[in-house]
Nucleic acid binder design. Sequence first.
DNA 1: GAGAGATGTAAAGATTTTATAAAGAATAGG
DNA 2: CCTATTCTTTATAAAATCTTTACATCTCTC
Lengths: 226, 226
Amino acid sequence: MNKSTVLVIDDEAQIRKLLTITLEAQEFYVHEATTAKEGLAAVANHPPDLILLDIGLPDQNGHDVLKHLREWYTNPVIILSVQSNEEDIVRALDNGASDYLVKPFRTGELMARIRSALRKSTVDENHALLTFGDLVLDFSSRTIKKNNEKIKLTATEYTLLALLAKNESKVLTHHYLLTQVWGPTYREESQYLRVFIAQLRKKIEADPNRPVHIITESGVGYRFIA
Amino acid sequence: MNKSTVLVIDDEAQIRKLLTITLEAQEFYVHEATTAKEGLAAVANHPPDLILLDIGLPDQNGHDVLKHLREWYTNPVIILSVQSNEEDIVRALDNGASDYLVKPFRTGELMARIRSALRKSTVDENHALLTFGDLVLDFSSRTIKKNNEKIKLTATEYTLLALLAKNESKVLTHHYLLTQVWGPTYREESQYLRVFIAQLRKKIEADPNRPVHIITESGVGYRFIA
DNA sequence: GAGAGATGTAAAGATTTTATAAAGAATAGG
DNA sequence: CCTATTCTTTATAAAATCTTTACATCTCTC
C-alpha cells in the first residue's frame, strides 16, 4: 500500500503539531496549512487523499471552505471543531463532510476515523497490473491484452495463465499446476495441461511454435517468462 | 428521489418506536428487527439502503453481526451504543461501520448522519450521468435512455444494470451479482441472472443476439462494456 | 541416429453453461 | 377486489467449453 497524503488545515500550531506527529508515525505524508486561503491553495496544487479541516479558521468560516471544496474535491474531509452543538454537526455533514470530530479528541479515535474514511474512498484503486513486454494482465478487470488488443480466454485458460504469470520465471510442476487449476483429483491428468498450454500459446504467443512466454521444462513442468 | 429503506436492529422497543416514528416522518420505509438473528435474516431477504445496528443485542455481539454483514453488504451501517469508550468505537469503525452514535442521541443529529451516510453510498448516483455510446444512465432519476429515448426498467433490472455499469469493464461473478442484487440467499440462483440479463439485453442492446454492452464471461460472470 | 518416453496439436464427442420463451405465482396500485 | 406488472420457475434450444482420442513431433540417451 502506498503512503497517503493528509492535509491539515488548522490555525492552532499546537494541534497541527500533534496531528503531524501522530500521522507521520502512522506512515502518512502530512502537509499543513494555517488559513482557509492557504488551505484551498494547497488542495488546488496537490490534492491530498484526505483533509482534516478545522471549522474555526481566522480568515473564513470552515463551512464555507467545505462548500467550496466540495464543488470539485471528492476525497474525504474530516471536520475538527471545538463546537459540539448539534446544528453545527448537522450543517457540516449536510455540506458533505465525511466525519466530524470534537476537540479535544483521542488520537486513537481520530486514526480509526481516518482509516475508515480512506478505506471507503480507495476501495477500487487496488489495480493489479502485470506487464510482460507485449502482454498485459489486468487482474482487477480479468482481462489480457496482447499488443493492446484484448484476448479472449476461457475461465480455465485464465486461471492457468494467471497462476503462471504470478510465479514469473519459476518452474511450476505438472502436479502443482493440475492441483491448483483443476483440483487435487486431477493431478495425474497431464494431457489436460498439454492441451491448455497449447491453447494459451496459440492465443498469446507471437509464434506458437517458438514460445517465448510459456516455456516447457521437459519432465518437470512449465515456466512463464517476461 | 425514491424512498430509502432503513432497517432498525435493536432489542429495546422504546428505541425502535422512536426511530421508526422519526424516520417515517422523514419519508423512509422502516423495517424492524429485535435480535441479531432476525436482523441478519431480514437483511438477507430484503437488503435495506441503510442499517441502524444496536451493539448490545441479546443473542449476539453487535461487532460480530457487523463483521458478518460486511462480508457482502456494502450499504451504510450506523452503530448505536450506550458505550462511548474509544476502543469500542475504533473497533466498530475498523469493522466497516459507517458511523457511531452514542445513546441517548438527538434525533436531529441522527437524521443528519443518516443523510450523510446515504449520500456517500450514492455519491455516483447523485452526480453521475454515465454515457456509453448510445446509452445514457442517469442515476439521479433512475432513468435509462437509448438513442435519447427513455427505456423502462423494473427495479431489479435497474439495480442489476447500475451495478454492472458502475463497474464498467470489470467482470462481476455470478455469486457477486446475485448477492448484491437479490441477497446472499440467492447466490446459487444463476438462472435468475440469465433471465434478467436477457431482459436487459432486449431493452438496451441494438441487437440482443450480438450484445456489445453486456458481455458474457462463460463460467465466470458478466461484464459491462462502453 | 534409433528408439522410448515426453510433449504438441487437431479435431470429434461429451458435458456444461448460457439464452430465450413462456407459463404460473406473487405483488403493487388503483 | 381486480388488474397490470413483475418475479419466479420450467422447458428446451443453442453455444461454449471441457474431455478424450489419435497421431505427430520433439528430446534425451545410448
